[in-house]
Simulated assay, not measured.
Amino acid sequence: MNRSRTALTALALVPVLALGACSGDDPEPKLAPPPSSTAPSSPSTTAVSGPVAPTMPAAARGDDAAAAEAFVKFYWEMVNYAQVTGDVDGLKALASRCGTCDAAVDYIANVYERGGHIRGGEGRFRDLRANFLVREGRPRALVRGDLVSTRQRVDLPGSKKDESYPGGTLPFEVLVEVTSDGWVVLTMGKQ
């Protein structure tokens, strides 16, 4: 893994490309033992808890600066979710021709396909600000802010392959574009 991918993984994958939001030591749901054969069975009223995929907030459905900023926050929530669960489908749908995004999705998927898990690395933005551009009639926004991430550990089978990344703050920018289906990420990276 080259140095730039490691940095991206540590502060964008760790937080965007990082996985943490609802991470715990065991993201698998715990099931109660089956009822004994002597006790009558009754339906359980306890819901099984676990990470739930974020939903697009109403604030991200416009085509102004506030909507662009809300979309970028939502995108990072999807990164956090993907890192916790290994479910990258929703994250894939939010980017278009974004090599960094594709690399992050591939990295997360590969960790889980190899039997690994990602712990920590939850990312969130602060101090977001969007500047608009128009290209070929489509509004685009360059959203800049500080990406703050927690410490992350990538656990792979066999401890020799495990990876750790410190948390931290990184000036970050995300170029987004409005399409007929809503916003998509075109590029992202360190400012």
Rank of each mutant, 00 (worst) to 15 (best):
P34L: 11
P33G: 04
A66V: 06
R129M: 03
K73N: 04
T38E: 11
A47G: 13
P29S: 03
K73L: 06
N110M: 03
T100P: 00
K160S: 15
P34M: 04
L91V: 09
A82C: 05
A103W: 08
V79R: 12
D64A: 02
A82D: 06
G62N: 03
S37Y: 01
D102H: 01
R151E: 14
V111S: 14
L91G: 12
V143H: 04
K160E: 11
P139F: 02
S159P: 02
T45G: 04
R135F: 01
K160D: 11
S44D: 00
R97Q: 08
L91P: 06
P29E: 05
Q83I: 15
R140N: 11
V48F: 14
A32Q: 12
R153V: 05
Y107K: 12
V111M: 13
R135P: 00
G50N: 06
G90Y: 08
T150S: 13
A70T: 14
A53E: 15
C98Y: 02
K161F: 15
A93V: 05
S23H: 15
D26A: 14
G116P: 15
R140M: 13
N131G: 09
V72N: 10
P157G: 00
P34Q: 09
P139D: 00
M56L: 15
G120H: 12
W76T: 13
A95I: 04
R144F: 04
N131D: 15
E122G: 15
E113D: 06
C22I: 12
S41A: 14
T45K: 01
P51Y: 11
A32W: 14
G99F: 05
D146Q: 09
D146W: 09
Y81M: 00
